[in-house]
Amino acid sequence: MRHTPASLMLFAAGYGTRMRPLTDTLPKPLIEVAGKPLLTHAMEQVAHMPDLKVVANAHYKADQIVDYFAGTGVMVNREAPDLLDTGGGLRNALPLLGDGPVFTMNTDAVWNGPSALECLAQAWDPERMDALLLGVPPEHALGHAGQGDFSVDAEGRAARGPGLIYSGVQILQTKELLEIEDSVFSLNALWDRMIVRERLFILPYPGQWCDVGRPENIAMAEAMLRGEDV
């Protein structure tokens, strides 16, 4: 079995309820920021690693996601009849992603800095890690309230608590997905198991990141991309 990720899961299936009314007619990943759909911003991260196999899930307004990726080589895995959440969606896509660790990426953020995927790839150590999350210090995160999702110790291990904000990008070992009985579940279920075993790690991102989860965050993200103080 390979030990470095060769595939990427893009989460693009959600309803985008916080982005209404924009998502009344569009799936959230196709909402534009700085003249480009959020999916295009995500794929710009992938451009730094052109050999990755890419799979996107789709549920809400899935035909639009399929049309976006037509002719690109990205495989779209439809979730029907139910939305499976992040853990269930990833497990459902494993036949397309293949064995071994995978990258996963949410599609509701934009970045101003080095490639998120390359940052993770350079720090990945499968001997110590079952997952490596990319976290953002609160002072470098826009559009996100709170004190962070994970604390981090001197060796990079993650625990629940104030500290770094999860950016939506990670490398994850997938074999444990098969041990969860529920069909609909969050990746939080895996992370909690890994925390107990001290196998969940988090890496600080050195650039800026903006959560585009609400309509008012679009202008904030565009200002960040222009290099303006926000």
Rank of each mutant, 00 (worst) to 15 (best):
P5A: 12
A6M: 02
S7T: 07
M9A: 11
F11R: 08
G14T: 03
T17D: 15
R18W: 09
R18H: 11
L26D: 05
K28Y: 15
L30I: 03
L30P: 05
V33R: 00
V33S: 07
A34G: 06
L39D: 04
T40I: 11
A42D: 08
M43Y: 02
E44H: 10
M49F: 09
P50W: 07
V54H: 00
A58R: 01
A58V: 07
A62L: 09
I65S: 04
V66A: 13
V66Y: 01
V66M: 02
A70P: 02
G71A: 07
V74P: 01
V74H: 02
M75K: 00
R78G: 10
P81M: 07
D82E: 15
T86F: 07
G87L: 04
L90R: 01
R91Y: 05
N92E: 13
A93L: 02
L94R: 13
L96D: 05
G98W: 01
G98T: 09
T104G: 05
N106G: 15
N106H: 08
D108C: 05
A109R: 06
V110E: 03
P114H: 01
E118V: 01
A121K: 12
W124R: 03
D125Y: 01
P126K: 01
E127Q: 13
R128M: 10
R128E: 10
M129W: 00
M129Y: 01
D130W: 04
L134W: 04
P137L: 03
L142G: 14
G148E: 12
G148W: 11
F150L: 09
V152F: 07
V152L: 13
V152P: 09
G156S: 12
G161Y: 05
G161L: 04
G163Y: 04
I171N: 01
L172H: 02
T174P: 02
E179A: 15
E181T: 13
D182Y: 02
D182P: 05
F185V: 03
L187T: 05
L187F: 10
N188S: 12
L190I: 13
D192W: 00
D192V: 10
R193C: 08
R197S: 12
E198M: 12
I202R: 03
P204S: 03
P206W: 02
G207S: 10
Q208A: 09
D211Q: 14
V212S: 03
E216Q: 13
I218D: 04
M220V: 15
A221D: 14
A221H: 02
E222M: 08
E222R: 01
A223N: 12
L225G: 07
R226T: 08
